[in-house]
């Protein structure tokens, strides 16, 4: 780690902080634009106007927006996102229990789609011919099928027709690692299908581009065995865009987990967004948006540092 790398990391870190701050402001404004005041939401229909006003007063709803924002930010940096308007529970505690679910889902799906995608993409680029066209057609089809549709078909095939996997629900790792893995299997595969197709395309294109580089000819001119040209030199050259593609994919999969969680009844962040948006639970929406952003930005930052580390031009200057 030399100066360039450290500077690069510092710049990225600053950008990441800025991103989270921007999202925090955005989320705050959006939540304020939601129909219904906190009092009306938490007391439900039929509450008297006085009672509603009373709750709003207590929550500081009528204070200037900037004051409310900084009050919220002050609490948020200490990890406190307030309490849910619906059930009065701590938003932070709720999210803390949900984060592992979504994280397992997104991480599992990213790893699986990277393995499948790189395998398919490299095969298509290296083998060429008919196999390339078959993989291309298959990948094109997978990109066009919505994840939720694929998920339902998986449920039908593996849970209804043959009960290999549980159709829905989540078993925490602490309870039973084996059941945890089984409960994750279908949602992870569902999410990974689209991701794998995306990464396969990226990998194929990057490998083909790598093979067009002139240094490949030099390697052949010095009698380098084909396997070494492909899997040491070309893949190494292609690894930069592939890793960048995987980073992008993680963001997509993290968002995609909303659908997978709904489909497979997984108590994750996605489900929290969906339900808190439906019920206009302002603190919950705000908390989950910020947490999701922090996670995505952090993982993205790591993957990007990894990408840069792969590039000798940035690593050793």
């Amino acid at each position: 780690m030399d100066v360039t790398m450290a500077m690069f990391a510092a710049k990225r870190l600053l950008m990441a902080l800025a991103t989270v701050l921007v999202v925090a402001v955005l989320a705050f404004l959006l939540v304020h634009a939601m129909p219904g005041s906190p009092g009306a939401v938490s007391l439900g229909a039929g509450a008297s106007q006085e009672a509603i006003d009373d709750v709003n007063q207590r929550l500081g709803w009528n204070d200037p927006l900037a004051l409310q924002f900084f009050r919220w930010l002050g609490e948020a940096v200490q990890g406190n996102f307030g309490t849910s308007l619906i059930d009065g529970r701590s938003v932070s505690a709720d999210l803390a229990s949900r984060l592992p679910v979504t994280a397992s889902l997104a991480a599992g799906a990213t790893v699986l789609s990277a393995i499948l995608g790189i395998g398919l993409g490299v095969t298509a680029a290296v083998r060429g011919g008919l196999l390339d066209r078959i993989i291309g057609g298959f990948v094109g089809l997978l990109v066009a099928l919505p994840a939720f549709w694929i998920g339902i078909i998986f449920v039908y095939l593996f849970a209804v027709q043959s009960s290999v996997f549980p159709a829905t629900g989540y078993v925490p790792f602490e309870v039973s690692p084996q059941d945890w893995a089984l409960s994750l299997a279908l949602p992870v595969i569902t999410l990974a299908v689209g991701g794998a197709a995306f990464i396969a395309r990226q990998t194929r294109a990057s490998m083909l581009e790598a093979l067009q580089q002139e240094h490949i000819r030099t390697l052949r001119a010095t009698a380098t065995p084909t396997w070494k040209i492909l899997y040491v030199h070309a893949l190494r050259y292609a690894s930069l865009p592939i890793v960048a593609g995987i980073a992008l994919q993680f963001i997509g999969l993290f968002g995609g987990s909303v659908i997978a969680e709904q489909l497979f009844a997984m108590p994750g962040l996605g489900q929290a967004v969906q339900s808190s948006v439906s019920t206009h639970d302002a603190p919950a929406v705000q908390g989950v948006v910020v947490i999701a952003t922090v996670v995505v930005v952090a993982v993205n930052l790591l993957l990007e540092l990894a990408t840069k580390f792969l590039d000798p031009k940035l690593r050793a200057s």
Partner: peptide, 9 residues
């Protein structure tokens, strides 16, 4: 680098 789906929701 934003979780687009969450923001749309």
């Amino acid at each position: 680098s934003l979780p687009g789906t969450v923001i749309i929701l």
